[in-house]
Design a protein around this nucleic acid. Structure first.
Lengths: 203, 203
DNA sequence: GCATAGTTCGAACGATCGTTCGAATTTGGA
DNA sequence: TCCAAATTCGAACGATCGTTCGAACTATGC
């Protein structure tokens, strides 16, 4: 990797940490200069502006988490493995990746609407692929569930997982694997295993 | 109610809508003036500044949702009713309240760290009471669950419910009651009913 | 050692922000 | 009708924002 790319990568990582701590909008370019050791003007050699910086961070992180999920699912290929096991694999990957990349994933989750125009559209395109991936898994797990419920359940699961950035402390008592196991157990136990009718509109 | 208080209330509601749409930090006082029909300087007769405005919105909303939950639980008093039913009551109230007060609840959830100093502390005090309320319910529902798991499960549930502001469309296909039923079914089915051991560290 | 391309930065610009101030206007009771 | 209190607002202030510009510095190949 060329030295330029390495410096850019370090820049993106450190900027992500600042965005995660202070929020995108209340972080100034001067804050970023102080945190990265660069000068105010020097950052513009690597990035066209503040919003492109956020875009680069989000696109890099989202691409990685999507590719990681697809790679993890290759091990439990469709048709060969239990649908529930595939769903469990997806959840475990998402949660452990989240915990291992807390700053970037917080910026991805919390600043989902801080981009505008074309940049927003590009990130949303990746998000769509990622959501579709999960909804496909849910279709295999619960084919009889109404589509509306399945879609809402997908967002509920993402809520459980993405909310992590609001409370999870890597130095705390629960490690990422255990947290992933808990979330997988709760969701799969409540959504996939539930053969008892829903109290609202049971069948 | 005095006319002053009514005008203040309308002001808070309309400001909450703008904060929910644009985010707190990228909303300018001039945006709020345009949205409320007041003049830029006129708003300072009702509020000491932008941050106090956010504080008033959050405190008002949080007080209401806490009081609403306590009132809802009075109908299914502790000791008299099934712990699972009490938990279900809490979930149903939170979700339906969220859907009925989308703007305020989004500001509460998404701008949880936009306050500073004493104001942040005051809102966090209410939040603590609200979280404690849920953790108490979970203790009654799953007394054998380790405390670490129970605490994480509480945040997972809040994640499912609070993430709503990122995707829920009141004009969409699923109404608040049905959504509340789905979330209650998933969480209770996965956490409370799970008498099967956890795959990670089962007992 | 020289020329070229790659990289860094001090200083400044215009724009926009939250807030203030004193005056103008409106309201409500005597 | 008149006065005091309550309420509104135009205009401006200082601060801070993202960005730009040209010069200075550094590394590289010859």
């Amino acid at each position: 990797m060329r030295p330029y790319d390495e410096r850019l990568d370090r820049f993106l990582s450190r900027a992500a940490k600042v965005f995660a701590d202070q929020g995108y909008h209340s972080t100034t370019m001067r804050d970023l200069a102080a945190a990265t050791g660069m000068s105010l003007a020097g950052m513009y050699y690597y990035v066209r502006g503040k919003e492109e910086l956020l875009h680069r961070i989000q696109e890099r992180c989202f691409t990685r988490v999507l590719a990681g999920a697809e790679r993890a699912l290759e091990g439990v290929g469709r048709g060969h493995a239990d649908p529930v096991e595939r769903l469990q694999t997806f959840i475990r990957h998402h949660v452990t990746f989240f915990a291992a990349n807390l700053a970037e994933m917080k910026v991805l989750s919390h600043e989902a609407n801080s981009l505008t125009g074309e940049r927003q559209r590009k990130v949303n395109a990746i998000k769509r692929r990622y959501v579709d991936l999960l909804e496909g898994l849910l279709r295999d797990v619960a084919p009889d569930e109404p589509a509306v419920e399945r879609s809402a359940a997908a967002y509920a699961l993402f809520g459980m997982m993405n909310w992590i950035y609001n409370w999870y402390d890597p130095a705390g008592e629960i490690d990422p694997d255990r947290l992933a196991g808990l979330i997988a157990r709760v969701f799969i136990g409540g959504f996939a295993d539930a053969r008892s009718p829903s109290p609202v509109h049971g069948g």
